[in-house]
Design a protein around this nucleic acid. Structure first.
Lengths: 337, 337
DNA sequence: TTGTAGGCGTTATCAC
DNA sequence: GTGATAACGCCTACAA
C-alpha cells in the first residue's frame, strides 16, 4: 500500500480511502490511485485491516454434514443474504462429531468471525457452553435447533412436535393402525419432540402405541434401511412407517423394495424436510416440507442485524412445516387393519 | 496475550511457544501458562498471527453450487485431508455466475488463503487469468476441470471423453440405435469432451449421429426434464438418453414418467457422476461413477504438498470413472430398431 | 486534502 | 530457557 501511495503521489490514507470507497476524494485522484493499484496488481490484506478494525466480515457456520441435502439448501439461504450484505461465510462440517464441532468453534473464534450460525449442535454440552459464553459476551449467535441456548442468542425453531403429529395423523386418517417410527438420534431434543408428536397423533387417533414399532435411528439412508428391515421382520409388521427424514425414508423404501414390498401399496412411508429430490423420487415422497432456504435467510438476517446493532436481544423464530401428500402414502392394504 | 504473560510471570514469547506447541519449554512452565490461559479464557487472534507469520492455514475453495450432490462429496474429500493436516477450508459457491466467481476469488485473495481449489470455473476468461496469475506467482492452485491453466497449477482431470464413450457404447451394445444426448452447458470444455465421447461411440457402433438427437442443457434437473420432453416429441424419438449427469437423468426420468413412458422398458436413461442417491433411485441409475471423494482428497494432498514445498511443479492427475450398470438401461423395446 | 505517529496482537531475532 | 524490540499491513487521529 505504501508503494501504491508513493507511485500515485498521494498519501497512504488517500489510498485507504479509495479502497474503502470513502467520500472526500476527488474523482481524478481516485482514478489515478485505482490505475496504480491495477498496475501494481495490489491486493489489500484482510488480516491487517481486520486486525486493526477489530472486526471481520465473515460469518462462521457449523453444520453436521453437507452431505445431507437438507443443509446445502440451508447454507444457500444463509449465503444469499450474507453475500448481498458484503459478508462471507466460513462453513464447517462437524460430521456429527462433538470434538470436531468444538475444534471448529475454536477455529472460528481464532478467525474472529463476526457471528456464528450453528445448526443442530447435537446436544453437545461443551459446545453449548462455548456458544452460550459467546452469546453472553455479546457475540451474535444463531442456532438452528430446538431450544434457546441463551437469552441473547437467536434460535431458529422448527415445529417438530406439530409437524410429526401432522404427518402421523395423515397416516391415521388414511386408516393405518400399525405405524412404525424410525427415530432421530436417541437422546437429542429432536428425538424427543418428534416422538411426542408421533405419540400424540396416535393417541388422538385412538391407537395404542407399541414399543416394538419404535426403532431408533439417525438421519442416514442406512438407518432407514435397517429400520425398515427390522420393522418388517416383526411378527405383525406395520402398514406405514414414519421416517426421521427424507434420506431415512429413501433408505427404508429401498430396503422394502429389496424384499419385494411395494411402496405405498404394501406399506406407506413418510419423510421429513422435503429435500429437492423428494418429489423426484419414485414414489414421490409424502413429507413435511420445511422452509429451509427461508430459515437460512431469516437466520442470517437476524444475525447481521445483531452484528450491526449489538443491543438487539435474542429471539426465537418459529417456522411452520407443510404437509405434502405425494405418492408414498395410501390407505393400508387391509382397511379392516 | 500480554496479560497472560504477565499473570504467568513469563515472557510473551514463552506464551506464544506454548500455544503453538513449540519445543523448548519446561513442563511446569507450560502447565502454568496453560492454566492462566484457561483462567483468562484467552483465545489467540488468528489475524494477528497470520499477519505476522505471513501465512494462513486456510484453503480457498470455489465450486459452482453446493446444491448438486456431486460437490458435497468432493468438498468432503478436500476437507477430510485438510482438517487432518490442520488446515481449514473456506468454501464459496459461485453459483455458475462468472462475476460471483471473480468476486470470491478476490475475497479469498484478501483473506490471504494459503492455496486455492477451483472446481469447474466454467470457461471464465477473467477468472482463469486471475488463477493463472496466482499460479505464476507461486501460490498453489488446484483446479478440477478439463485442462491445465498454468504449468504450475495442479489439475484434476476426469476422463470425460472416454467415460461418455463408455456409457454410450453400453447403450449401443444393448441394441440402441437412436440415442439422445442431453449435453452439458454449451461452449464449455466438458461439453466438447462429452460430445466427442458420445459421437465416437456412435461411430464405433456404426451409427450415424443425428443432430436432432443432441439437445443442449446444463447440469440441472430442469434441463433433464426439458431435454426428455423435447426428445420424446421428435417424430422418431430415441430409445435411450445419455444425460449430462445424474441430476439431469433424474429430471429426464421424471418427465418421462409423467408422459407415461417407462424407464427402462420404453426408454433407457444414463446418468453421470454416481451421486449417493443414484443407486437408491428407482430405477437405480446406470451411470459413470467418478471417484469424487478421492478426487477431492488427492487434490488437497497435492495442494498441501505445494504449500509446504513451493518448488513443486504443476501436474495433471487423471481419474478414471467406472461404468455402473444398474436398472435404468435395458435393450430397446424393438430390437429391430 | 496531506503527512506523521501510534497501535491492533502476534511472531522473529536477537542477545542474555 | 528468557526478555526486549522490531516488524507485519492497515487504520485513525491529529495537526499541517
Amino acid at each position: 500500500m505504501t508503494d501504491v501511495a508513493k507511485a500515485a503521489k498521494v498519501s497512504l490514507q488517500t489510498v485507504s480511502a479509495v479502497i474503502n470507497g470513502k467520500p472526500g476524494i476527488s474523482e481524478p485522484t481516485c482514478e489515478r490511485v485505482r490505475s496504480v493499484i491495477r498496475e501494481f496488481d495490489y491486493h489489500p490484506n484482510g488480516f491487517a485491516s481486520s486486525l486493526r478494525a477489530r472486526r471481520s466480515f465473515t460469518i462462521g457456520v457449523v453444520i453436521p454434514t453437507i452431505t445431507n441435502p437438507y443443509f446445502p439448501e440451508f447454507v444457500r439461504g444463509l449465503e444469499d443474504v450474507a453475500h448481498r450484505k458484503g459478508y462471507s461465510v466460513f462453513l464447517c462440517n462437524s460430521d456429527h462429531d462433538q470434538s470436531k464441532e468444538i475444534s471448529y468453534l475454536q477455529l472460528l473464534r481464532r478467525h474472529q468471525v463476526a457471528g456464528y450460525v450453528v445448526a443442530y449442535g447435537l446436544s453437545n454440552p461443551q459446545g453449548d457452553r462455548i456458544l452460550a459464553e459467546l452469546a453472553a459476551d455479546g457475540t451474535p449467535v444463531v442456532t438452528l435447533g430446538t431450544r434457546q441456548l441463551h437469552p441473547r442468542a437467536v434460535t431458529l425453531l422448527s415445529d417438530d412436535v406439530h409437524g410429526t403429529a401432522r404427518i402421523t395423523s395423515h397416516l391415521v386418517r388414511l386408516g393405518h393402525r400399525r405405524i412404525g417410527f424410525i427415530s432421530p438420534p436417541a437422546g437429542g431434543d429432536v428425538h424427543r419432540h418428534r416422538l411426542t408428536g408421533y405419540l400424540g397423533a396416535l393417541e388422538k387417533g385412538g391407537i395404542c402405541p407399541e414399543p416394538e414399532l419404535i426403532v431408533s435411528g439417525d438421519f442416514s439412508v442406512e438407518a432407514g434401511r435397517r429400520g425398515a428391515v427390522h420393522l418388517t421382520n416383526l411378527s405383525e409388521p406395520p402398514s406405514a412407517i414414519v421416517a426421521a427424514n427424507d434420506l431415512v425414508a429413501i433408505g427404508a423404501i429401498n430396503a422394502l423394495r429389496r424384499i419385494r414390498k411395494r411402496v405405498p401399496e404394501d406399506v406407506s412411508v413418510t419423510g421429513y424436510d422435503d429435500i429437492p429430490l423428494a418429489r423426484l423420487f419414485h414414489p414421490a415422497l409424502t413429507t413435511m416440507a420445511q422452509p429451509v432456504h427461508e430459515m437460512g435467510a431469516a437466520g442470517m438476517r437476524a444475525l447481521l442485524a445483531r452484528i450491526e446493532d449489538p443491543k438487539l436481544t435474542g429471539e426465537a423464530i418459529r417456522f411452520n412445516s407443510r404437509l405434502l401428500v405425494r405418492e408414498s402414502t395410501m390407505p393400508p392394504p387391509d382397511r379392516a387393519g
